[in-house]
């Protein structure tokens, strides 16, 4: 375990994707009161309808936001990774309008919502960076809506794989062209409005077209440019602006 005083540093790294923070602002983030918990895979972090008293920051591992529909089926609306403040909106909104569950084992810091509000106003640059963060979340949601509304199965999955790779690379967790995907086919299906067998067949199709290679959970995007074309992927919506080197493959 690292020095406890640095525990919240993934939040600084994430917010600095949007705005540079000065030393005092960074110290204020590191000094936020919090409690750290280890969560197993498939643990519920936020339950729809609850009034969370804390915002949760992912320090390690992956989580997803989802809704369970009346017929029992599930729709996954976002994937979160290290540094993401998964339910920042609950710092203001009060009642959780969807649930959050871990995809993998995860380490989570719970920060009291009042403290999230306080730091945003006491350190306006931090507040602004958190505002950016929710705006980019919104941008990703819009892209996901376009995904399930208008793209075919192959493009949906190709798009999700491009996004996942770029986001991992942006936070220093890997290379966008080669990474471990912590999702089952069923979860990929719930995130793309497909079904598991359909996901399996579509991944196989992407593989036979030479766009990806897979081995267990490892995904390799063999040809980034062709993959982008297949997905209709344009990274502008992630607003990473040069944070990720998009140099030639």
């Amino acid at each position: 375990m690292q020095d406890r005083s640095q525990t919240l540093s993934p939040m600084i790294d994430k917010l600095q994707l949007w705005r540079p923070l000065d030393p005092a602002e960074k110290r204020a983030i590191l000094a936020l009161p919090h409690k750290v918990e280890e969560a197993r895979a498939h643990a519920c972090l936020v339950r729809e309808g609850e009034k969370p008293s804390h915002s949760c920051l992912l320090l390690e591992g992956f989580a997803f936001r989802h809704k369970v529909l009346v017929d029992g089926s599930r729709s996954i609306s976002a994937i979160h990774m290290k540094g993401d403040i998964v339910d920042l909106q609950n710092a203001l909104l009060g009642t959780a309008d969807h649930s959050v569950e871990t995809l993998t084992r995860a380490t989570v810091a719970f920060i009291p919502r009042e403290e999230m509000k306080r730091i945003a106003f006491e350190f306006p640059s931090v507040g602004l960076a958190m505002w950016y963060d929710t705006l980019v979340d919104g941008s990703i949601f819009r892209e996901w809506i376009a995904n399930i509304a208008r793209r075919d199965a192959a493009a949906r999955l190709a798009h999700l794989l491009c996004e996942f790779g770029l986001r991992l690379q942006a936070i220093g967790l890997g290379d966008r062209r080669s990474y471990q995907l912590p999702m089952t086919q069923e979860q990929l299906a719930d995130a793309t409005g497909l079904t598991s067998v359909h996901v399996n067949r579509t991944l196989m199709d992407l593989e036979s077209r030479g766009l990806i290679a897979r081995s267990k959970k490892a995904v390799t995007i063999a040809d980034w440019k062709r993959m982008e074309d297949a997905a209709g992927f344009n990274e502008a919506y992630l607003h990473l602006r040069g944070q990720v080197s998009l140099s030639p493959p």
Binding site: D152, L194, T195, S196, V197, H198, R201
Partner: peptide, 10 residues
């Protein structure tokens, strides 16, 4: 059934 119909519709 859902699996089959999903593939057929796509």
């Amino acid at each position: 059934l859902r699996e089959a119909r999903s593939i057929i519709s796509s």
